[in-house]
Nucleic acid binder design. Structure first.
Length: 569
RNA sequence: UGCCCGAUGGUGUAACGGUAGCACGACAGACUCUGGAUCUGUUUGUUAAGGUUCGAAUCCUUAUCGGGCAGCCA
C-alpha cells in the first residue's frame, strides 16, 4: 500500500467515493469476503500522472480494506511492448511511493489462458475463424445493423480444437486465423459480436521470447488473469464499460469459481496537457519536447525533472476524486499541492534571474562580509546558512523602476528598500548606456541596518533578493508554462493535431542568471525556493561550473497579477 | 440515427428524500524582513420540462447536451 498519510478528500467523508462504496457493499453482502485489486498497465510507453491515479486507487483501496494489490503488466501485444517500459513503470511507481504485494505479467498466464481457450472450444463457445481482418469488420455489421455469422461459426469443436492447436504450433501465417468467442452477432453491444480471443503474431515477446506465436486479446487475457490471481475488484477506466458484459461472459462460460467484479471510473485529464502515448511520441519526433522526461510533460519523469515531489503528486491525484464524470482539471489544482508542500519543506536561496548591477558607494572598497539567512521561515529546525555580501551586487532588473507607479514598493531613485537578510539601501543615481537603458544603480547603504532592521524602527516598503556580484555563480534558469495553449487537448477539432496548439512560451531559457554560492553544485534533485521567484530544481543538463535550474512552479505574485489586470499606461 | 454511460459555481468534488457544503481559482481586506506564507471576508451552482412526495440535486418520465463502442489496440 502507498503512503497512508494522505489527506482526506476535500469535502466528503474519506473513502466515500462510489468505488469504495461498492467494495464496502460487496463485503457487507457477502459477495466477497476479502479485497484484492490489481493495476494492469500496458508497458508501451512511460507512465504519466493519469497512471498514478489509477495505480494509487488500486493500491489505496486494497490497503483500506486490508486486501492486496498486484502490479500486473498487461503484456499481450509484443509488438508495442518492451522491458524498457516495464522498468519505467516499476521505477516510476516506486519513486511515487506506490508499492504492491506482488508483481505479475499477463504473459505468466499464457499457458493457462490457452487451456481455458481449449475448454471454450470444446464447449462450443469459441471457434477458429478464417475471415481476414477486413472481412471480420464487414461481418461485424454496424451499431444500427446486426452482423452476419462467420462461415466458420458452426465448425465442429473437434475441428476447431485441431485448428487452434495448429495455430499455436506456428503452422499458419500472421492474420490467417483467429480464435473467436461464439456469442451473438446481433448484439447491440459490438463487443459481443464474436470478439477475437487470439490472433497469430510471429513476434518475439519481451518475456516469453519465441515461445508463442499466438497472443491473447485484451478482453480474453484481462478477465482471466484477474480470475487466476483471485482479484475481487477489477477497477478500470470508463472506456471499458461496454466491455464489462464480455468480461462477465468469459467468467461465466469458464465457470470460474471467482466472478471478479469490474468497476469503471473516470480518467484523469488536466487542461493544457496531453496524455496520449502516441501524441508524446510525435512531439518528441518533431523536437517539440526533448524526451519522455521533458519538464513540460505530465509524465512521472517529466514532473520529477520539473521539480515535483512524489507526495505532491499523490496528494493531487487523491484529491481529484473518483467518479464517472468526464473531467478536465485545472492545472492550478496540481500546482497548489506542490506549493503547499514545498512552502513547508523547501529551503530558501537567493537567485537573480535578470541581473541589474548595483554598486554600494559608501561600502568599504574590497570588503566582504557574511550575513545569515534562515533556510526556511516555515520551519525553525531547518537552520540557516551564511552568504557573502559586498559592495557590488545584483538585483532583479524589474525590482527597479526609475519612474514608478504608486503601488510599486521596490527600488526607485531616492527610495530606500531592504536587501533581504542584509542592509537597507537607497538608490542615489541611475547609470544608463548610450541607448538610455539602465545598466547600473549607484546606491548607499545604512550600516546601522545590518540584518535587515534599524534601531529607529523605520519602515521600508520593499524587500529585495540579491546576490553579491564577485561571489555569484553563473547559471541558466528555465521557466515553464503549459505545453499547449489550448485548454482541452483531449478532444481536438477535426483536422488538427496536438502540435498545432503548442504554446511558444512553454519554455523560456534565461542564460545570464546569478545565483548565490550555496546553490552551486546542488545537482541532487532537491527543490529550493528562490526567494520571491518560485520553486526550482537543478536539472541534469547543468554542470558544477554552470548549473541549470528548472522552475517547478512560481510563487503567487500579486504584483504581477495587478500588472496583468491593469497594464501601465 | 442502435446500445452503454454521464450532467451540482470558473474548475474539481460532497450532500444515498429533509439547511446545497468543501477544496482550488478569482476578488477584497488584514498582516508581513519573500507583493511568498498566514488570517478574514465576498461572489458565482443542482441542464430543462413534467411527475411522485408534506418535502427532490437525490426517485420516475421525456427532452437537451456531452462521452464511449463498428482494432486481429488496450
Amino acid at each position: 500500500m502507498a503512503d497512508s498519510s494522505h489527506r482526506d478528500p476535500p469535502g466528503g467523508e474519506p473513502g466515500a467515493d462510489f468505488v469504495r462504496t461498492a467494495v464496502r457493499d460487496d463485503l457487507a453482502s457477502g459477495r466477497f469476503d476479502r479485497v484484492q485489486t490489481r493495476w494492469p498497465p500496458e508497458p508501451s510507453g512511460y507512465p504519466n500522472i493519469g497512471h498514478a491515479k489509477a495505480a494509487l486507487l488500486n493500491a489505496d483501496v486494497a490497503g483500506e480494506f486490508d486486501g492486496s494489490c498486484t502490479l500486473r503488466f498487461d503484456d499481450t501485444n509484443p509488438e508495442r511492448e518492451s522491458v524498457e517500459y516495464v522498468e519505467a513503470f516499476r521505477d516510476d511507481m516506486a519513486w511515487l511511493g506506490i508499492t504492491w504485494q506482488q508483481v505479475r505479467f499477463a504473459s505468466d498466464y499464457f499457458g493457462r489462458l490457452f487451456e481455458f481457450a481449449e475448454r471454450l472450444v470444446q464447449a462450443g463457445d469459441a471457434y477458429v475463424c478464417s475471415l481476414t481482418a477486413d472481412q471480420v469488420r464487414e461481418y461485424r455489421g454496424a451499431p444500427t445493423r446486426p452482423g452476419r455469422p462467420s462461415p466458420d461459426r458452426d465448425r465442429s469443436p473437434d475441428e476447431n480444437l485441431q485448428l487452434l492447436r495448429r495455430m499455436r504450433e506456428g503452422e499458419f501465417p500472421d492474420g490467417s486465423y483467429t480464435l473467436r468467442a461464439r456469442i451473438d452477432m446481433a448484439s447491440p453491444n459490438l463487443n459481443l459480436r464474436d470478439p477475437v480471443m487470439y490472433r497469430i503474431r510471429h513476434a518475439e515477446h519481451h518475456r516469453t521470447g519465441g515461445e508463442w506465436c499466438i497472443y491473447p486479446s485484451y478482453d480474453w487475457a484481462h478477465g482471466q488473469s484477474d480470475s487466476i490471481e483471485g482479484v475481487t475488484h477489477s477497477l478500470c477506466s470508463l472506456e471499458f464499460e461496454n466491455n464489462r458484459p464480455l468480461y462477465d461472459w468469459f467468467l461465466q462460460h469458464l465457470e470460474s469459481e471467482l466472478q471478479s467484479r469490474q468497476i469503471e471510473f473516470n480518467h484523469l485529464y488536466i487542461a493544457h496537457a496531453t496524455f496520449g502515448k502516441r501524441v508524446v511520441r510525435a512531439l518528441i519526433e518533431k523536437g517539440v519536447v526533448r524526451g519522455w522526461d521533458d519538464p513540460r510533460l505530465l509524465t512521472i519523469r517529466g514532473l520529477r525533472r520539473r521539480g515535483y515531489t512524489a507526495a505532491a503528486i499523490r496528494g493531487f491525484v487523491r484529491s481529484v476524486g473518483v467518479t464517472k464524470t468526464r473531467v478536465l482539471i485545472d492545472p492550478a489544482q496540481l500546482e497548489y499541492y506542490l506549493r503547499e508542500e514545498l512552502n513547508r519543506t523547501a529551503q530558501r536561496r537567493m537567485a537573480v534571474l535578470d541581473p541589474l548591477r548595483v554598486v554600494i558607494t559608501n561600502y568599504p572598497q574590497g570588503r566582504t562580509e557574511q550575513v545569515t539567512a534562515e533556510n526556511n521561515p516555515e520551519d525553525e529546525t531547518a537552520g540557516s546558512h551564511e552568504l557573502p555580501f559586498s559592495g557590488e551586487l545584483y538585483i532583479e532588473a524589474d525590482d527597479f523602476m526609475e519612474d514608478p507607479p504608486r503601488k510599486f514598493f521596490r527600488l526607485a531613485l531616492g527610495r530606500e528598500v531592504r536587501l533581504k537578510h542584509a542592509y537597507y539601501i537607497t538608490c542615489d543615481e541611475v547609470v544608463k548606456d548610450t541607448d538610455g537603458r539602465v545598466v547600473e544603480l549607484r546606491c548607499s547603504y545604512d550600516p546601522e541596518s545590518r540584518g535587515g532592521g534599524t534601531a529607529d524602527g523605520r519602515k521600508v516598503k520593499g524587500t529585495l533578493h540579491w546576490v553579491s556580484a564577485p561571489h555569484a555563480v553563473d547559471a541558466e534558469v528555465r521557466l515553464y508554462d503549459h505545453l499547449f495553449s489550448r485548454e482541452d487537448m483531449v478532444s481536438l477539432p477535426e483536422g488538427t493535431t496536438a502540435a498545432d496548439y503548442v504554446n511558444p512560451d512553454s519554455e523560456t531559457v534565461l542564460s545570464t542568471c546569478k545565483i548565490e554560492p550555496a546553490l552551486a553544485g546542488v545537482a541532487d534533485g532537491t527543490t529550493y525556493q528562490f526567494l520571491r521567484k518560485g520553486y526550482f530544481v537543478a536539472d541534469p543538463d547543468g554542470s558544477v561550473d554552470r548549473p541549470v535550474f528548472n522552475r517547478a512552479v512560481g510563487l503567487r505574485d500579486s504584483w504581477a497579477k495587478q500588472q496583468a489586470a491593469a497594464p501601465p499606461g
